[in-house]
Protein backbone atom coordinates (compact mmCIF):
# COMPACT_ATOMS: atom_id res chain seq x y z
CA UNK A 1 0.00 0.00 0.00
CA UNK A 2 1.37 3.41 -0.98
CA UNK A 3 2.02 6.10 1.61
CA UNK A 4 -0.58 8.24 -0.12
CA UNK A 5 -3.63 10.36 0.72
CA UNK A 6 -6.30 10.18 -1.95
CA UNK A 7 -9.16 12.70 -1.81
CA UNK A 8 -12.20 12.74 -4.07
CA UNK A 9 -13.56 16.27 -3.81
CA UNK A 10 -17.20 16.76 -4.80
CA UNK A 11 -17.76 19.89 -2.74
CA UNK A 12 -17.29 23.49 -3.83
CA UNK A 13 -17.93 24.85 -0.33
CA UNK A 14 -15.15 26.94 1.14
CA UNK A 15 -15.42 25.41 4.63
CA UNK A 16 -14.92 21.90 3.28
CA UNK A 17 -12.19 23.05 0.92
CA UNK A 18 -10.33 24.53 3.91
CA UNK A 19 -10.48 21.13 5.61
CA UNK A 20 -9.29 19.42 2.42
CA UNK A 21 -6.37 21.84 1.97
CA UNK A 22 -5.25 21.44 5.61
CA UNK A 23 -5.20 17.65 5.22
CA UNK A 24 -3.24 17.97 1.96
CA UNK A 25 -0.68 20.21 3.69
CA UNK A 26 -0.44 17.90 6.71
CA UNK A 27 0.08 14.87 4.46
CA UNK A 28 2.85 16.63 2.51
CA UNK A 29 4.55 17.64 5.75
CA UNK A 30 4.38 13.98 6.83
CA UNK A 31 6.09 13.10 3.56
CA UNK A 32 3.04 11.46 2.04
CA UNK A 33 2.01 11.65 -1.58
CA UNK A 34 -1.32 13.42 -2.21
CA UNK A 35 -3.75 12.92 -5.08
CA UNK A 36 -6.96 14.91 -5.48
CA UNK A 37 -9.83 14.28 -7.89
CA UNK A 38 -12.26 17.14 -8.46
CA UNK A 39 -15.82 16.21 -9.25
CA UNK A 40 -18.74 18.52 -10.06
CA UNK A 41 -18.64 21.44 -7.58
CA UNK A 42 -15.04 20.69 -6.69
CA UNK A 43 -14.00 21.34 -10.30
CA UNK A 44 -16.21 24.45 -10.38
CA UNK A 45 -14.47 25.86 -7.27
CA UNK A 46 -11.07 25.53 -9.02
CA UNK A 47 -12.16 27.62 -12.03
CA UNK A 48 -9.81 30.59 -12.38
CA UNK A 49 -12.74 33.03 -12.41
CA UNK A 50 -14.35 31.41 -9.32
CA UNK A 51 -11.55 30.28 -6.99
CA UNK A 52 -10.98 33.62 -5.21
CA UNK A 53 -14.57 34.87 -5.39
CA UNK A 54 -16.20 31.77 -3.91
CA UNK A 55 -17.75 32.42 -0.47
CA UNK A 56 -20.13 29.46 -0.49
CA UNK A 57 -20.46 27.65 2.86
CA UNK A 58 -22.08 24.26 3.41
CA UNK A 59 -23.03 24.63 7.08
CA UNK A 60 -23.91 27.28 9.68
CA UNK A 61 -24.28 29.85 6.90
CA UNK A 62 -25.32 32.56 9.37
CA UNK A 63 -21.81 32.24 10.90
CA UNK A 64 -20.12 32.92 7.56
CA UNK A 65 -19.34 36.59 8.08
CA UNK A 66 -18.04 35.94 11.60
CA UNK A 67 -15.75 33.15 10.35
CA UNK A 68 -14.33 35.29 7.54
CA UNK A 69 -13.75 38.20 9.97
CA UNK A 70 -11.99 35.94 12.49
CA UNK A 71 -9.83 34.37 9.75
CA UNK A 72 -8.71 37.85 8.68
CA UNK A 73 -7.95 38.83 12.30
CA UNK A 74 -5.77 35.74 12.72
CA UNK A 75 -4.21 36.30 9.30
CA UNK A 76 -5.09 32.72 8.30
CA UNK A 77 -4.28 31.77 4.70
CA UNK A 78 -7.11 31.03 2.26
CA UNK A 79 -7.69 27.38 1.34
CA UNK A 80 -6.14 27.78 -2.11
CA UNK A 81 -3.01 29.34 -0.59
CA UNK A 82 -2.65 26.36 1.79
CA UNK A 83 -3.08 23.98 -1.14
CA UNK A 84 -0.59 25.93 -3.28
CA UNK A 85 1.94 25.77 -0.43
CA UNK A 86 1.36 22.01 -0.13
CA UNK A 87 1.83 21.62 -3.90
CA UNK A 88 5.05 23.64 -3.83
CA UNK A 89 6.41 21.60 -0.89
CA UNK A 90 5.76 18.03 -1.99
CA UNK A 91 4.12 15.49 -4.26
CA UNK A 92 0.58 16.79 -4.80
CA UNK A 93 -1.31 15.99 -7.99
CA UNK A 94 -4.70 17.51 -8.74
CA UNK A 95 -6.99 15.98 -11.36
CA UNK A 96 -10.34 17.18 -12.64
CA UNK A 97 -13.16 14.83 -13.61
CA UNK A 98 -13.68 14.80 -17.38
CA UNK A 99 -17.48 14.92 -17.10
CA UNK A 100 -17.31 17.95 -14.78
CA UNK A 101 -14.99 19.69 -17.26
CA UNK A 102 -17.46 19.02 -20.09
CA UNK A 103 -20.30 20.31 -17.94
CA UNK A 104 -18.47 23.53 -17.03
CA UNK A 105 -17.03 23.75 -20.54
CA UNK A 106 -13.48 24.15 -19.21
CA UNK A 107 -10.04 22.93 -20.21
CA UNK A 108 -7.14 22.20 -17.85
CA UNK A 109 -5.86 25.76 -18.47
CA UNK A 110 -9.11 27.25 -17.14
CA UNK A 111 -8.59 25.57 -13.76
CA UNK A 112 -6.15 26.65 -11.06
CA UNK A 113 -3.44 24.14 -9.97
CA UNK A 114 -4.97 21.26 -11.98
CA UNK A 115 -2.40 18.86 -13.49
CA UNK A 116 -4.64 16.77 -15.69
CA UNK A 117 -8.16 15.72 -16.63
CA UNK A 118 -9.12 12.11 -15.85
CA UNK A 119 -12.02 9.70 -16.10
CA UNK A 120 -13.49 7.89 -13.09
CA UNK A 121 -11.88 4.56 -14.01
CA UNK A 122 -8.31 5.80 -14.03
CA UNK A 123 -8.94 7.77 -10.84
CA UNK A 124 -10.20 4.69 -9.01
CA UNK A 125 -7.12 2.72 -10.07
CA UNK A 126 -4.92 5.54 -8.75
CA UNK A 127 -6.86 5.56 -5.45
CA UNK A 128 -6.81 1.80 -5.06
CA UNK A 129 -3.40 1.58 -3.45
CA UNK A 130 -3.63 4.77 -1.30
CA UNK A 131 -3.29 4.23 2.45
CA UNK A 132 -6.00 6.84 3.10
CA UNK A 133 -8.98 7.53 0.84
CA UNK A 134 -11.42 10.33 1.60
CA UNK A 135 -14.55 11.66 -0.06
CA UNK A 136 -15.14 15.34 0.64
Amino acid sequence: MADKLSMTVMTGSVDRLIGMAILAGGAVAMDMEVEIFLQLWGAYAFKKDVIKENMNLSEFKEKGEQVVKRMKELNLPMWFDILKQAKDSGAVKIYACSTACTLWDVKKEDLEMVDDILGAGEWLLKSKDAAITLFI
Partner: peptide
Protein backbone atom coordinates in the same frame (compact mmCIF):
# COMPACT_ATOMS: atom_id res chain seq x y z
CA UNK B 1 4.64 31.60 15.46
CA UNK B 2 1.37 32.97 14.09
CA UNK B 3 1.12 30.23 11.46
CA UNK B 4 -1.87 27.92 11.53
CA UNK B 5 -1.72 24.14 11.05
CA UNK B 6 -0.19 22.72 8.85
CA UNK B 7 2.04 25.81 8.23
CA UNK B 8 4.55 25.12 11.04
CA UNK B 9 4.97 21.49 9.99
CA UNK B 10 5.54 22.48 6.35
CA UNK B 11 8.14 24.99 7.58
CA UNK B 12 9.83 22.17 9.52
CA UNK B 13 9.85 19.92 6.46
CA UNK B 14 11.38 22.71 4.37
Amino acid sequence: RGMSCPGPLLAVKK
